[in-house]
């Protein structure tokens, strides 16, 4: 026979009545001033174990018992809430919680550094080419709206660029079709970027900056590396995943979620872009080798770009390199010159 003190609430009013509860084999007796109740133990429901001041027993007919005698409840209902009992066993011991924390930390570290990129890569394989092309079209429209206008290069120069592009893009694996979009983008300067679906945007300034076709082809090959790896799509998927991960971790701190989520997700994101840049560099070098163009042309082109953008400040960037989406050009040039 298990006995404990409790408060009885009949469920019709919030009046609190102190009672003595006795749990015998199969029966629960509730006795107090003006209260004399008896229930089969199988018809009452105890709530799951947890570190709260009071636990509750729901009685048939809407009544309720509240008690702070956790030990008595554990003895009276040994088999109830198996799942929560094991969860509670973990929650109560620091040593177990710390072990769980270590495992969780390792899992999240792996998830953020390798798991998410891997998942994004796999998931990208499932995204139909058509959907990706639609994304790319949307992105190009956005670029045209806010950054760029039609190219001002002469027809002859345009033809030559398209021929260069054809040369670089030949031997892309089936299904991926790359297109060249020439644009005049005064706000962006000399640059090239790959959009989802295989559109490579090249700015007029970049075409003018290149000293020869081979240098230009090396940049195109780099962008085609992004196209080939479906990097834009993977990046979009990765950033969505990173945001979801951080939101899941910090979601509790609701009021600051906006800021708290944005910064770590941005940091993770920056790391991903660096990895993808390197992947595209490696692709470009392999492609250039196949075309019989020395990798040095690529290094020259990067140096030109760096100089054009005010390379004097590049030396100061190393500490903040992790925050930048492009690894500092000096580092990339070194990598390219040292060979793939």
């Amino acid at each position: 026979m298990i006995e404990f003190d409790a408060f009885y609430f009949d469920g019709r009013s919030s009046a609190r009545r102190p009672v003595r509860v006795r749990g015998g084999p199969g029966v629960l007796y509730v006795v107090g001033e003006g209260v004399r109740l008896e229930y089969p133990l199988s018809q009452v429901r105890v709530d799951a174990p947890m570190e709260v001041p009071q636990r509750r027993i729901a009685l048939p007919g809407g009544g309720q018992l509240q008690t702070s005698d956790h030990a008595a409840l554990a003895a009276l209902f040994p088999g109830e809430h198996a799942l929560e009992q094991s969860v509670h066993a973990f929650e109560r011991r620091w040593i177990r919680v710390l072990a769980v924390l270590a495992l969780l930390g390792a899992a999240l570290w792996w998830g953020a550094s390798d798991g998410l990129p891997l998942a994004a890569k796999l998931l990208a394989g499932w995204v139909p080419q058509r959907a990706e092309a639609a994304m790319g079209k949307g992105a190009l429209d956005a670029v045209d709206r806010s950054w760029c206008g039609p190219t001002e290069l002469g027809a002859e120069r345009q033809g030559a660029l398209r021929a260069d592009f054809e040369r670089a893009a030949r031997e892309l694996p089936g299904g991926i079709s790359a297109r060249l979009a020439l644009r005049r983008c005064a706000k962006i300067g000399p640059n090239a970027f790959a959009l989802p679906g295989g559109t490579v945007v090249v700015t007029d300034a970049l075409a003018r900056l290149a000293q020869n076709d081979e240098q230009l082809i090396s940049v195109l090959a780099h962008e085609l590396g992004h196209v080939h790896g479906r990097h834009s799509l993977r990046l979009a998927l990765q950033s969505a995943g990173a945001a979801a991960l951080v939101a899941a971790l910090l979601g509790d701190a609701v009021s600051l979620a906006g800021i708290a989520v944005a910064l770590p997700a941005a940091l993770i994101q920056a790391g991903y872009s660096r990895d993808l840049e390197r992947e595209a560099d490696d692709y470009a070098l392999a492609r250039l080798a196949a075309l019989g163009i020395p990798g040095e042309r690529f290094a020259e082109m990067l140096a030109l770009l760096e100089h054009e953008r005010g390379g004097k400040r590049a030396a100061a960037t190393s500490a903040l390199d992790y925050l930048s989406t492009h690894p500092a050009s000096a580092e990339r040039i070194r990598r390219i010159r040292s060979g793939p």
Partner: peptide, 26 residues
């Protein structure tokens, strides 16, 4: 930082300062 796009430090600084400002005001 837009004037000198390659200067990663400029971009990073503006991000950091922008966030700090956001925090200080928001």
């Amino acid at each position: 930082s837009v004037q000198r796009p390659s200067a990663a430090s400029g971009v990073a600084m503006s991000v950091i300062v922008g966030l700090a400002m956001l925090l200080a005001v928001y």
